[in-house]
Amino acid sequence: MTDATPALSPPSSPRLTPAFVIGATLVGLHVIVGLITLFWAPYDPTAMTGGRLAPPSLAHWAGTDRLGRDLFTEIMVGARIALAVGIGAVAIAATIGVTIGLLAAFASRTVDDVLAATLDILIAFPTLLLAMLIVAASDGASLGTAILAIGIAASSIVARLTRILARRVLAMDYITAARVSGTGWLGIVRIHVLPNIWPTLIVNLALQFGLAVIAEASLSYLGLGAPPPNASWGRLLQEAQATVYTAPFGAVAPGIALVSLVIGLNLFADGLRDVADPTRRRR
């Protein structure tokens, strides 16, 4: 370690990787499409606007489903549902998970051990299975129930990660320095813990967003997600299953939409860490 450089190096700048740009573009496209459907759509998503199982054409870019509804309109509306589920589930998972994780990190060893064991048991259940149990235990399938179920199921993963990250931060000398500086525990969480766990946490939350979209599609595929006439991508896939050989685009189109959003979220998540973390910036 040397001290011989009185001149400062040039300031660092955020690094936008190609993956981040591609991810942000894919996610941005879905967000724009989802927002547009709040005001406008090519057709009424519940109306029969063409022949049954029509192939893609200028009038129906993705063809029609077995009831003659415009598939492109349904996919556009499905983007809104997928994003609503992702945002809602991640908000629930982040609120519950970060709170429990921080409490565990600050708790006495006994309380921490109990919380850690509970989280490990919850994580042992696959997210989808846990969400199915919660939906089954509720009054019935609805979009709200799906969001709640996926959010609760994902919160244990977020809590566990938060606990591990926060404990690592709390062991650092700068936390001791903060205590010596007179910073209280709430201040330490706000000033030091959250900003230091944020870059890793945001990546995980973005990944959870993608998993939530897949989980909602899976629940809808099984009839436990957004009920008809909501145009969930999972329900579209389920409905296209019977006609996949005669009208494959009914399965391919919602599949492309789902995969592109999830890949976009994953790429976006990976690049987000570089933007959120000043220590990963290039000089």
Binding site: Y174, T176, A177, V180, S181, I191, H192, P195, P278
Partner: peptide, 16 residues
């Protein structure tokens, strides 16, 4: 009463 710690790498918050 203030303090300076041994490791200059871990005693400064990298995000501040």
């Amino acid at each position: 009463v203030q303090a300076v710690f041994q490791d200059p790498y871990s005693s400064l918050d990298p995000r501040q």
